[in-house]
């Protein structure tokens, strides 16, 4: 038996039509008045629910995100459209503000919003240098935390395109440490290199020496490593 005090926060089937309606209105409002994005960000979880997007493989919503993560990402895209082609500096400033003043869910929303912008090609080229610089700082902040959901939200398409190789490798290893599936990492095979494989092998050796389990995901980084528990 579940108990909530919000009738539209049902966990079973993702966004409700009330939630979808709210999101459509909020996106339109951001189009009219970009400053309204702060309030919409704060309310999104209550309005669209917090269910995982892929409950079959990701029941905690950490690897592939949640309904409210996706809603906030859509709000970021609406914000980018509202600020327009010359809005790079303004967009960077607003995203930094949303992140700095945001709680964990809002911070995930900013990170996944950066992913959405990266995926649609908005962040390539000279017209996005400010947003990309801000995005790198925010991703670095998220990757320093100990909240799996934030770390997992910082390794998507934006990270794949814009994180430096050292930071990216450490992000991948941190996910293994935290027990979060590497399915969270966009373009894992494209950027995985010998150094990452070396780090993975050394990690596996530490685990074996400690008599502890070597997670299966280590084999995705260093195929020669034996995972699981050794006798």
């Amino acid at each position: 038996m579940t108990e909530t005090t919000r009738p539209d926060a049902r966990p079973a089937d993702g966004a409700t039509s009330d939630g979808e309606r709210w999101l459509a209105e909020a996106r339109a409002a951001v189009g009219q008045d970009p400053a309204s994005v702060s309030r919409a960000f704060a309310l999104a979880g209550r309005k669209v629910g917090r269910a995982p997007l892929r409950p079959d493989v990701d029941p905690a919503g950490i690897v592939h995100g949640t309904v409210d993560d996706a809603a906030r990402a859509a709000l970021v895209v609406a914000l980018a459209d509202a600020l327009g082609a010359d809005g790079d500096a303004a967009l960077g400033a607003r995203l930094a503000d949303l992140y700095q003043h945001g709680d964990t869910a809002e911070r995930r929303g900013v990170l996944r919003g950066l992913d959405a912008l990266a995926e649609r090609g908005s962040l390539a080229g000279e017209g996005a240098t400010s947003v990309v610089a801000v995005g790198r700082d925010l991703a670095a902040d998220a990757l320093r935390t100990n909240d799996q959901s934030l770390v997992a939200a910082a390794v998507g398409p934006f990270a794949a395109a814009h994180l430096d190789q050292h930071a990216w490798r450490h992000a991948v290893l941190k996910l293994v440490f935290m027990g979060v599936s590497l399915d969270a990492v966009a373009g894992l095979d494209d950027r995985a290199d010998d150094e990452l494989a070396r780090m993975a092998r050394d990690f596996a050796a530490e685990r074996r020496a400690a008599g502890r389990v070597v997670p299966d995901d280590v084999a995705r980084l260093a195929p020669d490593v034996t995972t699981g528990r050794t006798a």
Partner: peptide, 25 residues
């Protein structure tokens, strides 16, 4: 969601090596 009493709070790593996601949000 995902919480099971008595489980260690570090998800996945101790779960017999499986990389299937566990953990609480």
């Amino acid at each position: 969601p995902g919480f099971v009493e008595g489980d260690l709070p570090t998800p996945g790593v101790e779960f017999e090596g499986s990389s299937v996601l566990r953990g609480v949000r």
